[in-house]
């Protein structure tokens, strides 16, 4: 009996290793090991290229509290995340509502809205830089000064570009949510006398809460991590007013040759993101209802 159980166990382990082994190994090699090594680097004064580094304990973490630039970039990133999440999801949801209501050319419009998502962040930034600097400044409805030359407008320029890029992707998830709600519920609600607004609020939205959970998580995390578009659209300017957290951390590690400190900031940033993402997932998951 014991031998039989043991054999079964080793068979299970073998099967597990056969199927999950390769991906587990890759995951450990490329995610877990670098993460742990990254944590170790936060406790050193490594400059990023030297072959020697001194162990400094938690000194870097203690110094983060004195880093005004880092905290101001975190605050800026928070504002950017809030604005992006609201606009991306708001617009994606409205478009999804329209594109599932039976209007003509739905498929063409869905593909059209999704297309910006296929353009990489760097290219996207350069395209929009051209639009803001060269196109909009020549149109009479816009001011002569580029959006990118004014700190407040440059911030909103980033939000506009992110909304343009990400809403098409979220749109597809919301469409899946809308389509996934059984017509039986809608029909039943109509028979009970519910109007369109009530159907949307009371029937559709609760039943497609999973879409909100996914979309909010994706937009939150991508907005927090923004770097490529930040670099090519505003390069942190004007006056250093749009340096988001990722750019500040990158500069600290690579430009200022303070890798240990930059890595520590990255860990703190990661923890902040983690807390926000977990709260978001908990809040939205609680509202999910089963049909």
């Amino acid at each position: 009996m014991y031998m039989q159980r043991k054999e079964k166990m080793s068979r299970k382990i073998l099967l597990f290793l056969l199927f999950a082994g390769p991906s587990m190994t890759l995951f450990v090699m490329f995610v877990i090991v670098p993460f742990i090594y990254g944590l170790y680097l936060t406790m050193t004064n490594w400059d990023g290229f030297s072959s020697t580094k001194e162990f400094v304990g938690l000194q870097n973490y203690a110094n983060i509290f004195k880093e005004k630039d880092f905290w101001s970039s975190i605050w800026l990133t928070f504002r950017y995340v809030i604005a992006s999440v609201i606009f991306v999801n708001g617009i994606a949801f409205l478009l999804a509502y329209l594109l599932t209501s039976g209007i003509k050319g739905e498929n063409f419009l869905r593909a059209g809205f999704f297309t910006p998502n296929l353009i990489g962040g760097i290219v996207l930034g350069f395209i929009w830089q051209f639009i803001f600097n060269r196109v909009m400044t020549t149109l009479p409805i816009f001011p002569e000064q580029s959006f990118l030359s004014d700190p407040t407008k440059a911030f909103w320029a980033m939000v506009i570009v992110e909304t343009w890029r990400a809403s098409g992707y979220m749109l597809l998830i919301y469409i899946a949510g809308f389509v996934g709600v059984s017509p039986d519920f809608i029909e039943a609600a109509r028979i009970d006398g519910a109007n369109n607004r009530q159907i949307l609020w009371r029937i559709r939205m609760p039943l497609m809460m999973q879409s909100f959970t996914i979309c909010l998580f994706l937009t939150l995390s991508s907005a927090f991590k923004v770097y490529d578009m930040n670099l090519s659209l505003t390069a942190g300017g004007p006056y250093g007013s749009t340096r988001m957290a990722a750019m500040t951390i990158f500069e600290k590690a690579f430009t200022y040759h303070d890798y240990g400190m930059g890595q520590s900031e990255a860990v703190v940033f990661f923890l902040i993101m983690l807390v926000v993402a977990v709260i978001q997932l908990r809040v939205t998951s609680k509202r999910e209802v089963a049909a």
Binding site: P238, Y239, G240, S241, E251
Partner: peptide
Amino acid sequence: PSDFRTTMEPYIQKLVTGLG
């Protein structure tokens, strides 16, 4: 040092645009 330019950049830009 290599961070000189990035550190001075906002102040120079503000001087040029009249905001600093």
